[in-house]
Simulated scan of single mutants.
Amino acid sequence: MALQWFPGHMHKALKEIKESLSQVDILIEVLDARIPYSSENPEIAKIRGDKPCLKILNKFDLADPDVTRQWQDELESQRGVFTITTTSDKPAESKHILTLIREHCAAKNASIQSINAMITGIPNVGKSTLINILADRIIAKTGNEPAVTKSQQRINLGSGIVLYDTPGVLWPKLENPNSIYRLAASGAVKNTAMEYDDVGFFAADYLIKAYPDLMKARFKLDTLPDTEIAFLEAAAKQRGAIMRGGRVNLHKICEVLINELQSGKLGRVSLETPSMVAQEKIEMAEAAEKKAAAKAKRKQRFKEGSLTPNKRDRKEKRTEKREAQSKRMKQDRK
């Protein structure tokens, strides 16, 4: 699936983040606990340098808690990174974020200067709701659709902490093709920019393998099919997603599956694990190596000229003729 959604304000937001980062003491990145890798902006890792980074695994109540703990261990093994899990229905626990900011900016917290923190996150990850909890007032506009925040703003959280809020941004080039599907399935991409059938097939294939009991119970199936198409057909019959003539309405059942995944009705599921991502990175590196080798080979062929033996002979004769002519001209000048 090709993701065709990178609005103009996202280009501007990435530029503003890079420009403002020098004024920031700590970086806060809000991740979707179901997809910590796919919702992590690779541009942030490139530009944050030595600044401490708090990664908030939001929507923890929707994610598999065992997998989330694996992700916290994985993320905290990185230099300068610490994590916390949050949910929108437990605002008191989210307030602990302020304590963590002060602890990791202890030197500045002890002075009279304010701590400048920048908060980033992909669209629809719950960043604006989290900001309103931290500020104890409605500041950031919230909504069920991605990309509600359009411009950067500064928010005084009190207690010496100033927050730089940035628009939710994706990045121009998504390297991992599976991440594209996970972002779409989790709700980070507007539904007008994705194909429900495509994303639904991807989600079904993963979920029946990773969470067979949940899927079997949710769709009231006596036995769970072992392929995504068979599962979707069985689920469609259970949910009445049938068209005239008894044909299965795949678009409708895919839409149902994605909506129930996003709302948490399927249960607590995570769409990626650290070991899964590690394997995908190996496969991506191998694919990149093959692509680079193929490119180098094409470049070499172009340099040498894609000539048949007959054409190559004629080219060599022309070269010899020019060299001989050049030699005669030099002798004549003498």
Rank of each mutant, 00 (worst) to 15 (best):
T192A: 13
M194D: 01
E195D: 15
E195Q: 12
G200P: 05
F202T: 05
F202C: 04
A203Y: 05
L207A: 06
I208N: 05
A210H: 12
A210N: 09
Y211F: 12
D213F: 04
D213W: 01
M215H: 07
K216N: 03
A217T: 10
A217I: 02
R218T: 06
R218F: 15
T223D: 09
L224Y: 08
F231N: 02
E233K: 14
A236M: 04
K237D: 01
R239V: 02
R239E: 11
R239D: 02
R239K: 15
G240P: 04
I242N: 00
M243C: 03
G246P: 07
R247W: 09
R247Q: 13
L250Y: 15
K252A: 09
I253A: 00
N259M: 09
E260M: 11
Q262S: 03
G264I: 07
G264V: 06
G264F: 09
K265V: 01
L266Y: 08
G267A: 03
R268S: 08
V269E: 04
L271R: 06
L271D: 04
V277D: 02
A278M: 05
Q279D: 12
Q279H: 10
I282P: 03
M284L: 15
M284Y: 08
E286R: 14
A287G: 06
A288T: 08
K290M: 13
K291T: 12
A292V: 07
A296N: 11
Q300T: 09
Q300S: 12
S306I: 09
L307E: 03
L307A: 01
T308M: 07
P309A: 06
P309D: 06
N310K: 14
R312N: 01
R312K: 14
K315G: 00
K317D: 08
K317P: 01
R318P: 00
E320P: 01
K321P: 00
A324F: 11
